[in-house]
């Protein structure tokens, strides 16, 4: 928990984003870590490496057109994504490129609630959510 807080804050600073945004992201990661500790036996903190694998996929179980986060958000999280159906631009997922990413808990939960079923065919665990945010906080 302390580690994730330190990591998120460091990543936010490295990205040059506002200190407040880093604080909000760290608080969100703390909440997720508390959930993950209850949900996942042997939970020992979030992993950017697992987050990267989750982001890049490909996954079975979701929709063929959206078999990875990268399907819309591209393989490069700092790049602008494109909605697979409507063509709408999606601001980069990387915190360095979009500093307000993962700062509003309601917004974050809304997106996971929609996109995990689209990509994985199921809801994400708290550990997956934390891994994902940890990975993109360092991008």
């Amino acid at each position: 928990m302390k580690l994730s807080l330190t990591f998120a804050a460091a990543a936010a600073l490295a990205a040059g984003s506002a200190f407040a945004a880093g604080g909000q992201r760290a608080a969100l990661l703390d909440t997720l870590a508390a959930q993950a500790a209850k949900e996942t036996p042997g939970f020992a903190g979030f992993s950017a490496e697992r987050g990267r694998a989750l982001y890049l996929g490909p996954h079975a179980g979701g929709k063929a057109e959206t078999n990875a986060c990268a399907a819309c958000h591209t393989q490069t999280p700092t790049a602008t994504g494109r909605h697979y159906k409507t063509g709408r631009d999606i601001p980069p997922m990387a915190v360095s490129a979009t500093p307000k990413r993962f700062t509003d808990p309601a917004e974050v939960e809304k997106r996971f609630e929609r996109d995990c079923p689209n990509v994985l065919g199921r809801a994400c665990t708290a550990q997956e959510k934390g891994d994902f945010i940890t990975y993109l906080s360092g991008q």
Binding site: K63, K85, A106, K110, E113, R114, D115, P117, N118
Partner: peptide
């Protein structure tokens, strides 16, 4: 929502 989950609070 036309094949995508687009639920809102």
């Amino acid at each position: 929502h036309f094949g995508d989950k687009a639920t809102l609070p």
